[in-house]
């Protein structure tokens, strides 16, 4: 430390170092999953004695992990469809309605986020008992869709609020009908919000554990359920391999979000005035 440094400046430097340390502690444990996944023995270790792709082969070649992945993909995709479409309808009503009841609608849409997840899972379990047994996977999607709904609604509502009403009126007075205005004005201007909402609800559904645990049947097992069971019964680097894939998925989603955001920003700048 130089003598010319004031105590305040030194304090700032300590604060900065501390803040970067906290960020490092948030990210480094996840990075540590990469060496763990490259281990050769069945025991998990951050510094494996010998690096190998053994567990990658085991996971990619194993029918159980693959089937779990496909189940997760299927339930999460349908869940995303549910939360994004219902979320859009709700966001539209919340943003454009002048009704006094819209506060109640907002609370209703946010309910699945306020109610503890285990209770949402419990009620989805009850719902599934009312439905035919072969609709179980669809009920998993419905429950996961409910969990993503509040986030989707909030994000889409924020992007709809950002649309200038005069643009819509201009489109209408230029002769656009309802479908054209939606397809060529509202949708492109809200697309960033809709895509972010879809990406977030997909991640929420894809990572969801309790609903899938409650509704799981022989032959229907999602990835989180499989991970949960594996951690409980056999702690192997296979879980780290799956974790690395899940993190790659998150990176992909974040990258896609950023690309869409840039594209939307460019489109807004380049839009004909």
């Amino acid at each position: 430390m130089s003598d010319r440094m004031t105590p305040a400046a030194r304090g700032d430097r300590v604060l900065a170092g501390y803040a970067w340390l906290v960020l490092a502690l948030l990210v480094l444990p996840l990075i540590a999953l990469i060496p763990i996944s490259l281990g050769d023995s069945p025991t998990v270790s951050v510094l494996p004695d010998k690096l190998s792709l053994r567990w990658y082969r085991e996971v990619l070649g194993g029918a159980e992990w693959r089937s779990a992945f496909w189940w997760s993909l299927a339930t999460a995709s349908v869940a995303t469809l549910i939360s994004t479409s219902i979320g859009y309808l709700g966001a539209y009503a919340i943003v454009h309605s002048q009704s006094r009841l819209k506060g109640m609608l907002e609370v209703l849409m946010l309910m699945p986020m306020m109610v503890p997840t285990v209770i949402v899972a419990f009620s989805t379990y009850v719902l599934a008992t009312w439905m035919p047994a072969n609709a179980t996977w669809l009920m998993i999607s419905v429950g996961q869709g409910l969990l993503g709904l509040p986030v989707a609604t909030l994000i889409i509502a924020a992007s709809l609020r950002g649309i200038d009403g005069t643009v819509i009126r201009a489109a209408v007075s230029l002769g656009g009908d309802r479908r054209q205005v939606f397809a060529f004005v509202t949708l492109p201007m809200a697309i960033h919000g809709i895509v972010s909402a879809a990406a977030l609800s997909f991640l929420i559904a894809f990572d969801e554990l309790l609903i899938a645990v409650f509704l799981t049947r022989p032959g229907i097992e999602t990835l989180p359920v499989r991970i949960y069971d594996s951690v409980t019964y056999e702690l192997t680097p296979a879980i780290a391999v799956v974790s690395v894939f899940l993190m790659a998925l998150v990176c992909l989603a974040m990258l896609a979000g950023e690309v869409i955001r840039r594209l939307a920003a460019n489109a807004a700048v380049n839009a004909p005035q």
Partner: peptide, 27 residues
Amino acid sequence: VAILFPFLTSSLVRTFVFIVLLGRNGV
């Protein structure tokens, strides 16, 4: 990015890595 990456990563994954790190022979 450093906050959102763990925020968006599955809580199962984040818990699993802590089981490894906090073990008796962990880092």
